[in-house]
Design a protein around this nucleic acid. Structure first.
Lengths: 254, 254
DNA sequence: CCTGAGAAGTGGTCTATGCCACTTTCTACT
DNA sequence: AGTAGAAAGTGGCATAGACCACTTCTCAGG
């Protein structure tokens, strides 16, 4: 069997050559033509084309043809399995609960969670540590109406979203923003950095399958120890890799 | 035809239900069984399964079966077409060249590009504007050895990577880091913000198909006008959306 | 000259079928 | 009892053909 030459791969490689040698927007041969040229069946051709369409190298247009795509850049950052708590970094994470209460949402949080300021929420503040060093300060808010019986243990659990699921909440997606900021006095003392030191502010709003806001997270990450790494791939990306990293020791290539 | 019910979608939806109601690791019915249950052909079933495998909801194991995957979070940020210059934002971009020269790499840039400090590079510094407002300060470095005849016009072009390609350089991928910082005096005056204002530092190292470093970019983005937005999707992501945004006017939901 | 109908070519979907490769299980022989 | 091998079940790959939906071009009719 040694070779194990798959026709599908042959077709794909042939198409990759075409893509390399043709400018963006150029049409590639019709599927039925490719079948003849390469002596394969149409489903095989279609399968190969589909792969390249999925990776963004080709664009299909019904009734017109298939074309070399304009190169697009995709950037992927994948948090590890389990906790949806992006960002995630190498090293050993731990967390220390600073505060935990059931309180009214207030104006700021209520607006983000689309709640009345008087509506109750579960609130937890925790210091996140990497290898014993403070790395981030995280404030988590979950509407009490969403999960009335949520316990502290639930919120501390690594599989927080699995806990929510047990409470009948199916987490669907989240929108996250990242922006630079500087730490204030209390943040500085908790994180062990000088006041006004650079930091990253993460805000995340999580939505469930019913469209309800189920979580609002506000996190401050130390700028001197934390950076976001990402790999950008031009066009063909089989699967880009992770790389949200915490700098613990040396400074590395960057 | 009104309805236009695609069998493939029916199968996919059926599988999504199974995934919702089964724990991670649970097997789903065999493909041939699904064919009978849903009265469709195997290629149709396989096509639907493949889609869910691609989106990370199912895992196939040759000879064993197909299983519900452990939910993973993917975060995608896609820069618009054209310039690989991530980040990109809405609004009208323009740029003003501040400096342009062919100079020795120096220690810092040389290390990143894996060049001798004495090796020559093309250097360009430009101010990037959104709707006329300064948004970022970008420093671009390209080894002269990579593209000896590169002109200023090449480097200013929106399709800079296409220009490189014409010089025989096939850009492959890039590694980018993002970290918070504060602006210094000269950056502050160019960007029109106070000294020590929060900012994002982007560093990008681009590699070509031969493994050579072809570009090193160092950019400072205003923290008050720029933020990174991303959508995190649990498992099933047909295609997450863009969302690296510049805040020009109002503050928005966040 | 303009316009509309039709033909031709394209991708989109689906069926029916065959064989191969890998894994697990059970059985029969040692 | 242990082990090798067959059998059954799984996904992996490929074929041939049919029909549909959309786009473009051409050509005849106004």
């Amino acid at each position: 069997m040694g070779e194990a030459i798959l026709k599908r791969e042959q077709v794909r490689d042939y198409l990759l050559e075409l893509i390399e040698t043709h400018p963006a927007g150029a049409p590639i041969p019709a599927e039925r033509v490719l079948c003849q040229q390469l002596s394969v069946s149409r489903p095989t051709v279609r399968s190969a084309v589909e792969e390249l369409v999925n990776t963004g190298l080709l664009v299909r247009q019904h009734g017109r043809g298939t074309f070399v795509a304009r190169a697009k850049i995709t950037q992927e950052m994948v948090s590890g399995p389990g906790s949806m708590s992006l960002p995630r970094a190498s090293g050993t994470w731990a967390s220390r609960v600073l505060e935990h209460a059931r309180i009214p949402a207030g104006a700021r949080v209520g607006r983000r969670l689309r709640l009345s300021p008087a509506a109750e929420i579960h609130y937890i503040a925790r210091l996140r540590l990497v290898d014993g060093e403070p790395m981030a300060l995280e404030h988590l808010h979950v509407p009490a109406a969403v999960a009335p019986s949520l316990t502290l243990h639930d919120m501390e659990s690594g599989d927080f979203y699995d806990r929510l699921r047990e409470h009948g909440v199916h987490v669907l997606e989240a929108v996250q923003s990242i922006e630079p900021t500087v730490v204030n006095e209390s943040e500085a003392s908790l994180l062990g950095v000088p006041v006004l030191a650079p930091a990253l502010l993460f805000e995340r709003l999580t939505t469930d399958a019913d469209g309800r806001q189920v979580e609002y997270v506000h996190s401050i990450y130390r700028g001197d120890r934390y950076r976001i790494m990402s790999r950008l791939t031009l066009g063909a990306s089989p699967r880009s890799t992770v790389d949200v990293q915490a700098r613990i020791g040396g400074s590395g290539p960057f």
